[in-house]
C-alpha cells in the first residue's frame, strides 16, 4: 500500500521506514492510485516543465495585454529595467513569475500549479533556480514530484482553491511547492524541505482572494511575483536549519482553519477587498456584461 499523502509527518516516516526518497514516494502513489507508470509520470512532468519554460519566454517576448487592459506587458518592463533593486537574479525571478502569470491572464498556455491563478510561481522559481545553480531537467522534474506531494497534503489538510480557502490556498500552496522544490534541489534534508513549506505558509496565511472585476488579473499577477519571492526567502531560512517552531502539519491545519472561517466576500466572489474599492467597482462596471436577462423569481422552477 502506497503512502496516501495525508500528513508531512507520515511522508517522512514512510521515507525512513521504507528507505525511500521523497520523490520516490510520490511516484509510487501515482502508480498505485492512478495506474501511471513512473515513466509516464516523469514524461508528463517533463511536458509540464516545458510548458512552464515556454510560458516564461512567451510572457517576456510576446505582447501581453489582457482584454480588460489591466494587464499590459508589466513583466517585460520589469525584466528590462536598468536598475536592479537587489540583484539581476532577483529582478529575473520577479519578471519570470510575472511573465508566466501574464500569459495566463492573456489566454496563453500555462500549467495550473496548483491552479491557473497561481500559474506563474513555479515557473518563476524553477526557471531561476535551474539557471543560477546549473541544474539538469532531471533534478527539476524530481523537485516537481516533491512539490506535487506537498500540494497533495495541502489539498487534503486545507485547500488549494481560492473559492474555498482564499488566495493563501492558491498562491500560498504554490509558494510552498516552490520553497520545498528549492530546498530539495539544493540538497536540503527532509526536515529542511518541510520547514521551508512551513515557513512559506506562515508568510502567506490569511491572504484573501479579492480579484478586481472577478478577473484573474489584479492582484493575482503581482501576487505571483511576491509569492515567488517568499518561496526564495523561506528556502534561504530553511536551508540554514532555522526552525519554523510550529511543525508543518500544524501550520497547514492553521491555514485550513483560517480558510474555513474566512468570509465569503474574500473567496473569489469579487465582493470584498480590492474588488470592493471605488476604483475596483468602477473597473468592474466597465468590463462586465450588463445586458443580462434576469429571470423573475417565481418562474425559476423549471430553468
Amino acid at each position: 500500500m502506497a503512502f496516501l499523502f495525508e500528513s508531512f509527518e507520515g511522508w517522512k516516516e514512510y521515507c525512513i521506514k521504507h528507505q525511500r526518497t521523497l520523490e520516490q514516494v510520490v511516484l509510487e502513489y501515482e502508480q498505485q492510485q492512478k495506474g501511471r507508470t513512473p515513466e509516464e509520470t516523469l514524461s508528463g512532468l517533463q511536458k509540464a516543465w516545458d510548458v512552464m519554460k515556454d510560458a516564461v519566454h512567451t510572457g517576456l517576448e510576446e505582447d501581453m495585454t489582457s482584454r480588460s487592459g489591466m494587464i499590459n506587458n508589466g513583466a517585460k518592463k520589469v525584466y528590462r529595467y536598468p536598475k536592479p533593486v537587489l540583484s539581476k537574479e532577483f529582478q529575473q525571478l520577479i519578471s519570470r513569475a510575472l511573465a508566466a502569470k501574464e500569459v495566463n491572464s492573456c489566454m496563453g498556455r500555462v500549467v495550473a500549479a496548483p491552479t491557473a491563478g497561481a500559474s506563474g510561481i513555479m515557473p518563476g522559481v524553477l526557471y531561476t533556480l535551474q539557471e543560477i545553480h546549473h541544474l539538469g531537467d532531471k533534478k527539476i522534474i524530481d523537485a516537481m514530484l516533491v512539490a506535487a506531494g506537498i500540494a497533495l497534503i495541502m489539498e487534503q489538510k486545507a485547500s488549494i482553491s481560492g473559492a474555498v480557502g482564499g488566495c493563501q490556498a492558491e498562491t500560498g500552496t504554490a509558494a510552498a511547492m516552490g520553497a520545498g522544490a528549492i530546498v530539495f534541489c539544493l540538497d536540503g534534508n527532509i526536515d529542511q524541505v518541510f520547514n521551508a513549506v512551513a515557513i512559506t505558509v506562515q508568510c502567506m496565511l490569511g491572504l484573501v482572494c479579492d480579484p478586481v472585476a472577478g478577473l484573474v488579473e489584479v492582484p493575482c499577477v503581482v501576487r505571483n511575483a511576491s509569492a515567488a519571492a517568499i518561496a526564495n526567502s523561506s528556502a534561504q531560512i530553511a536551508l540554514a536549519d532555522v526552525s519554523s517552531v510550529i511543525p508543518v502539519d500544524e501550520v497547514i491545519e492553521a491555514m485550513g482553519e483560517i480558510g474555513a472561517s474566512m468570509e465569503t466576500r474574500y473567496k473569489e466572489t469579487a465582493l470584498g477587498g480590492l474588488a470592493a474599492t471605488k476604483t475596483g467597482k468602477a473597473i468592474a462596471k466597465k468590463v462586465l456584461i450588463h445586458d443580462i436577462e434576469i429571470l423573475p423569481n417565481e418562474e425559476n422552477t423549471s430553468a
Binding site: G44, C106, R109, T115, A148, A151, L152, E155, V216
Partner: peptide, 20 residues
C-alpha cells in the same frame, strides 16, 4: 484521490480552469 497532475496540471489555456 487527486493525481500528481491535478497538482501540477492540467496544461491549459488561461485565465481560469472553470472559465476556459
Amino acid at each position: 484521490k487527486s493525481s500528481v497532475f491535478d497538482m501540477i496540471g492540467p496544461v491549459m489555456i488561461g485565465p481560469s480552469s472553470s472559465h476556459t
